[in-house]
Design a protein around this nucleic acid. Structure first.
Lengths: 152, 152
DNA sequence: TAGTAATAGTTGCGAATGCAACTATTACAC
DNA sequence: GTGTAATAGTTGCATTCGCAACTATTACTA
């Protein structure tokens, strides 16, 4: 207990905060912030989804999603079409401007991962990817089983 | 394309956000938020340090530290004494109220780590602790080498 | 010793985020 | 069908956080 530097939670915090700052700096020439790029890269692979689906997939609050999508739409990076099968929802598509930007962003994200995994073997990288995914999954399940008493 | 769900950065983000929310819920009966508890637990082990030392050790911006310490002082969890050897700095100590609360917070943090590492072997846990620490270290060095140079 | 650097801390600003309350639409009872 | 519950999205509020500009003190240097 004396040495806290191996704490999972503390290193997660450091990596998250530094990662956000890194991406923000690297794409600051666009008007896209660290809170929006993840939606662009996700929509690149999953065009036509709704905000609800984005929120669920990325495990991000739907209010946060709404604000990010709003900014990206204002910036001309995506468009929203009302889903005619469910008029509450939108179907979201990247514009050409959005599509053009994604490779740049992806390169920055890959560069970040490369930098922080410097000195870490491919095997260890596989290991950490697998375990991080499992931990995130645990965290998500934990959250689901909380509070909402009517379901699950 | 490539499945993005193993992305280090995405799972780090999920774990950070869910972790913050978990701790906030678990200690909401106190008036301590998820942005302050880390200072309490750190001061428990390192009493008498300055805000600068806290910022450096936790790798948190000194402005953020100042605000957290201010709240904790207002709540009566710690006191600040001017360092007579350097009148710019304070030496920070937990009060009895602060000391009494730390075990409760530590228990919640340990419970969180236990919950998210459910189904993960001790060996894997050691592995992830070591690699996360290394990645956080890389991130920190990256940040250091940025500001020093004048270019970019 | 005077003048400049660096350092410790504070504060204001803005971004990212979650939560809760709200509207509008859809789904499901009956 | 009517009424209630669930769902998609919006918005306001509060918290966390980093950055930059600022003050006060200390360290360094010429």
């Amino acid at each position: 207990m004396s040495n806290d530097e191996a704490s999972i939670r503390r290193n997660i915090s450091t990596l998250y905060r530094y990662g956000q700052a890194y991406i923000a700096r690297r794409i600051e020439s666009t008007n896209i912030g660290s809170g929006q790029y993840i939606f662009l890269t996700t929509l690149y692979r999953m065009g036509g989804v709704s905000q609800e689906e984005l929120s669920c997939y990325l495990q991000i609050d739907k209010g946060t999603t709404a604000k990010a999508i709003k900014k990206l739409e204002a910036g001309g990076y995506l468009v929203r079409e009302i889903d005619l099968k469910d008029k509450r929802a939108y179907k979201i598509f990247l514009t050409q401007k959005g599509l053009d930007l994604v490779p740049t962003i992806q390169a920055e994200v890959e560069q970040w991962e490369k930098l922080i995994t410097s000195g870490i073997s491919d095997e260890e990288k596989k290991c950490i990817e697998r375990i991080l995914h499992k931990m995130a999954h645990n965290a998500h399940n934990l959250n689901k089983s909380r509070g909402v008493s009517t379901r699950e």
